[in-house]
Write a protein that binds this DNA or RNA. Sequence first.
DNA 1: GCCGGGCGATGACAAAAGTCATGCGCCGGA
DNA 2: TCCGGCGCATGACTTTTGTCATCGCCCGGC
Lengths: 206, 206
Amino acid sequence: MIPVLLADDETLIRSALATMLDLEDDIDVVAHVESGEELLALWRRRVDAGEPVAVAVIDLQMAGIDGVDTAEQILLLTPGAGTMIVTSHGRPGYLKRALTAGVRGFLPKTTPAATLAAVIRTVHSGGRYVDPELAADAISAGDSLLSAREADVLELAADGSSVEEIAQRAHLSMGTTRNYLSSAMAKLGVSNRYEAALKAREHGWI
Amino acid sequence: MIPVLLADDETLIRSALATMLDLEDDIDVVAHVESGEELLALWRRRVDAGEPVAVAVIDLQMAGIDGVDTAEQILLLTPGAGTMIVTSHGRPGYLKRALTAGVRGFLPKTTPAATLAAVIRTVHSGGRYVDPELAADAISAGDSLLSAREADVLELAADGSSVEEIAQRAHLSMGTTRNYLSSAMAKLGVSNRYEAALKAREHGWI
DNA sequence: GCCGGGCGATGACAAAAGTCATGCGCCGGA
DNA sequence: TCCGGCGCATGACTTTTGTCATCGCCCGGC
C-alpha cells in the first residue's frame, strides 16, 4: 500500500479524488486537507509518529502557501519524498518552478483519471512524470525574457495601479518605473502594461 | 435511481466526481462529458431514446458554451429539468444569471462532498439549493450599477485593448467608448479601466 | 405630452502613459 | 582592464486616456 496525502482547497474535488484513489487497491489515502499548512503539519506528525507518508498530491493554487512552496517544504523535511502537483492552470512557469523545487509529478486536471493513480505509483517508485503537453509548452516557452525588476514592476502593474502607485510600492522613481514597464512591453511585443502583465502571466513569468 | 449527467472540462475531476456519485445507491451517473455542447447532444439523444436524464450537474467554466448557457439550453428542451451548477469561482453575478435561467442548484467546489449528492436529490425532487454563503454574497452585492453598454465596453477592455480596438470591436466611436469607460469607472469608484474591469469582474457584472 | 435615462456622438482640455536619449555606478565575464 | 548589461534616475517629447459640456434620437413611465 502506498500511503498518500492529498491537499486541495476545494473540498468537493478533494473528497472525490480521495474516494477514487481509495478504490485502487495499492493506494491508501491516509488523509486529505485543505491547505499547504495543514499538509505540512500532518506530514511532520506522520514522520514523527514513525508512519511516514510516501506521496503528497498537492493542488497548485491554494489559499496560504501554494502547491510548489508546500512541496518545497516537504522536500526540506524529507529529501527525496514523493511530491506531485495537480493543477487547473498549466502554465509553463509553474512547471519549471515545481521541477526546480524537486517535485516529481506534474499533472493538469484535464488528465484522464487512470493517469493519476499511475503517476502516484511512478512517483512512489522514484520516477518522474510530467504531462507531455505541459512539457512541450514549457520547452517552447523558454526562459523569461524579463529582467528581475521588469518582472517586479509588471507584477505590481497587474492589478491596475497607476505608475505612481507602482513606483511607491517598488521604491522606484516614476520615471524608472515607466522605463521598466516600457522595456517589458517591448520585450513582450505589446503596447501597454496591462497586456504585458497578462502576457507575462500566461508565460508564468510573474 | 436518479439518472445524472455530468459536465466538466477537467477530466480528472469529472471522473472523480462520477466515481464518488456512483457509490451512492440512488444515483446513477449515466455519462460524463467535457463540454456543454456534448452535454446538450447527449441530453437530446437520451430524450429521443425515451430514457431522459433527470439531473444535469454542470461545471460553470468550460471551453465553448459555459455552464449557465448549457443549463438554459437544457431547460429549453426540457422545461423543469433538474439542472445544477458547480463552480470554483463563486461570483454573485453568475449565481444570479443561473437562477434567472432556471437552474435549481448552485454549489461552489468547496462544498463538503456529502452535500453534492444531497443537492442532486433535492433538485431531482423539484427543490432548490443555493450555497448559503454565495446567496449572502449575492444579496449584499446587489444589482449591477453598470448599463449594458458600459458592461460591454468594460468587458472588451479587460484584455488590455486600447480604446481604438475596443471602439472597433464594439462598433462605437472612440469618443463614445471613452465616455462609457469613464462613466463605468466613476460608478465603480476607480481611476482607470483596468481596475474597473477587475472590479466589475469581482462583482460578476461582466 | 413631457421628462428622464440610455445610447451614440463631438470637441476641447488636462492628466497619465509610453518613448527615447542620456547619465551614473556597479558587477561579472572576456 | 575594459566592455556590456542591469539597476536607477532625469528630462523632454508624443500619444493615449480620462473628464466634461453639449448635442440629438428614441423609448417608457408619469
